[in-house]
């Protein structure tokens, strides 16, 4: 991920008051800064969610293991591959854009978004499967966390797909950078959720 460049002017420096009279405020929104605020906040939320999950599991290891056995490990593993590939494509798009190869870059972004949709489809099959077994968020605390964490994550995938399509359209390098950073975060969160929820015995 690109290193945040916004750290420099947090503290007042001795300059004249800069008045920004004409340009629109949207232009001045520190987009990169806000994306990083968002990413850190998201990581805090998912981190706290996972920590709570592990803490509650300590109170009922047997019940949690039993509940976990109903999950679709293979589907989730497949989804990991899908999402990581998608992340790779997004990273490639940025390099292509910097090399001014815009068609290839757009192709990569749309393909990354398409993989996001594949992820959601697989997730959907998983949820439908749980529903057909009569499993809901109230069945067991394990499933409360399962639905909360993967559901929140899936919502971010939806947002990420939209963002990828948006930056394929408005493909300024700084847009791609911000969008790809968000997508890598979604990726990273899945890579944390997957082992803890599906694998850890």
């Amino acid at each position: 991920m690109p290193c945040p460049r916004f750290i420099d002017n947090w503290l007042p420096v001795d300059q004249h008051m800069k008045e920004n009279a004409t340009s629109s405020v949207l232009d001045e929104l520190p987009g990169e800064l806000l994306i990083w605020v968002l990413i850190v906040s998201e990581l805090l939320v998912f981190g706290a969610g996972l920590a709570a999950f592990m803490a509650v599991r300590l109170t009922d290891p047997v019940g949690f293991a039993e509940a976990q056995s109903h999950l679709h490990g293979t589907a989730a593993a497949l989804n990991t591959i899908v999402l990581v590939s998608s992340g790779y494509l997004a990273a490639r798009a940025l390099r292509l854009r910097n090399a001014a190869r815009r068609t290839a870059e757009r192709f990569c972004l749309v393909a990354a978004a398409a993989l996001g949709v594949v992820f959601l489809a697989i997730k959907g099959i998983e949820y439908a499967d749980k529903a057909s077994l009569g499993i809901t968020y109230e069945t067991h605390p394990f499933f409360t966390f399962y639905y909360l964490l993967t559901g929140f994550h899936a919502a971010h995938v939806v947002a990420g797909v939209l963002i990828l399509l948006l930056i394929a359209w408005f493909d300024e390098p700084r847009n791609i950078e911000a969008g790809a950073a968000f997508w890598h975060m979604v990726d990273l969160v899945w890579v944390l959720l997957f082992p803890v929820i599906y694998l850890l015995a």
Partner: peptide
């Protein structure tokens, strides 16, 4: 009397 730019950055965050 700090710079507006600095104030705004904090404000957005």
């Amino acid at each position: 009397g700090v710079d507006r730019e600095v104030v705004e950055k904090w404000l957005y965050v």
